[in-house]
Simulated scan of single mutants.
Amino acid sequence: MSGAPILPISRTAAATACSLSGIVFIIPKPSARIVIAVGEPCHIERQIGMSELEPMQQTLHALEK
């Protein structure tokens, strides 16, 4: 573990164009409304056991919904 905090970030745009290649890009169209949300940093200690890490994983997965 690097000791760097996990910063939850989400984004969406009202009107987008997507790439058809293997890499997916979400490109907002001109005058599209864009919303970016940034959550509170989640600090995880460098020396953490798997039993302590699992509740943190569940918390982060709950933020995805």
Rank of each mutant, 00 (worst) to 15 (best):
M1F: 10
S2A: 07
G3K: 05
G3S: 01
A4E: 10
A4N: 13
A4S: 15
P5H: 01
I6S: 11
L7R: 01
L7I: 14
P8S: 02
I9N: 04
I9W: 08
S10F: 15
R11V: 15
R11W: 10
A14W: 12
A15R: 15
A15Q: 14
A15S: 15
T16P: 00
T16V: 14
A17E: 09
A17H: 14
A17Y: 09
S19H: 05
S19G: 15
L20T: 15
L20N: 10
G22F: 07
G22Q: 06
G22A: 13
I23T: 08
I26W: 00
I27R: 03
I27S: 03
P28T: 07
K29V: 12
K29I: 11
K29E: 09
K29L: 08
K29N: 09
A32C: 10
A32P: 00
R33I: 12
R33V: 11
R33S: 12
R33Q: 08
I34S: 02
I36E: 11
I36S: 03
A37Q: 12
A37V: 05
V38Q: 10
G39D: 08
G39L: 01
P41W: 03
P41V: 08
C42E: 04
C42F: 11
H43R: 12
I44S: 05
E45K: 06
R46L: 08
R46G: 09
R46H: 04
R46D: 07
I48P: 02
M50F: 03
M50A: 11
E52D: 11
E52N: 08
L53V: 02
L53H: 06
E54W: 00
P55K: 00
M56C: 02
Q58I: 04
T59Y: 09
T59Q: 06
T59E: 04
L60M: 15
H61D: 11
H61Q: 09
A62G: 00
E64H: 02
K65N: 14
